[in-house]
Amino acid sequence: MVRTNVKMEMRAVNFYYGNTQALFDVSIAIPEKRVTALIGPSGCGKSTFLRMFNRMNDIIDGTNHTGEVMIDGESIYQNNNSSAELRKKVGMVFQKSNPFPKSIFENVAYGPKIHGIKERTQLQEIVENSLKAAALWEEVKDRLNKNATNLSGGQQQRLCIARALAVEPDILLMDEPASALDPKSTTRIENLISELQKNYTIVIVTHNMQQAARVSNYTAFFYEGHLVEFDKTNKIFTTPIKQQTEDYITGRFG
């Protein structure tokens, strides 16, 4: 077995929306260049957990947390101004595809432009590479100037992946990226995730147990804000240690 480095880490994290606690004493070490799936019933804190890593919870009023969140061994909540830098390194794909109402090209070029790349040829190169990496290039290369909102749902989601890749992150956070898609598009996204795993550390929230089993190397099971169990995916799905995990996976609740 090849040993992997720890890319993302949490130590004793509690998270609160106002007076409601959403995460309880969560500690985890997520390995680099692997796919980690987050499973658990609705409202168990998976998305909150995910959004800790790019500080997207910060934009919600009245939230706070204790404990430490680290990427590459550095605490990401130390400096208050660093969220833009952090988010450049930690890309995110949302549950509902959300391309900007701009052209396909402008969608992908948005991130690089924000981060100071102005030269047209360089942007073109980034757009092409990102779209290729997101397995969308062949479908859209002739209509880069068309509005992105005219693409199909599956294409839009891959465009959002391309857009996230364009700023060259190390990490991709995916919040149920295929939950609103048809089976065929879902398969394409899953294949894409397997492909991207070579270069990125991926954390994916999913409601779909089969999907977790198919795409991930590691699985974390959350229940009511607690991290119940975290291990290799095949271990979680075959010989879970906790009874709760087994009950959830075998469909006895959730």
């Binding site: 997207m56 830098e85 988010r87 890309g91 995110m92 900007f100 959002c160 700023v167």
Partner: peptide, 17 residues
């Protein structure tokens, strides 16, 4: 839609951008 804003912030854009 709020999702546009989220997408932009998640790409590392500032609030004004």
């Amino acid at each position: 839609p709020k999702s546009y804003k989220e997408a932009s912030l998640a790409l590392g854009a500032s609030r004004l951008q």
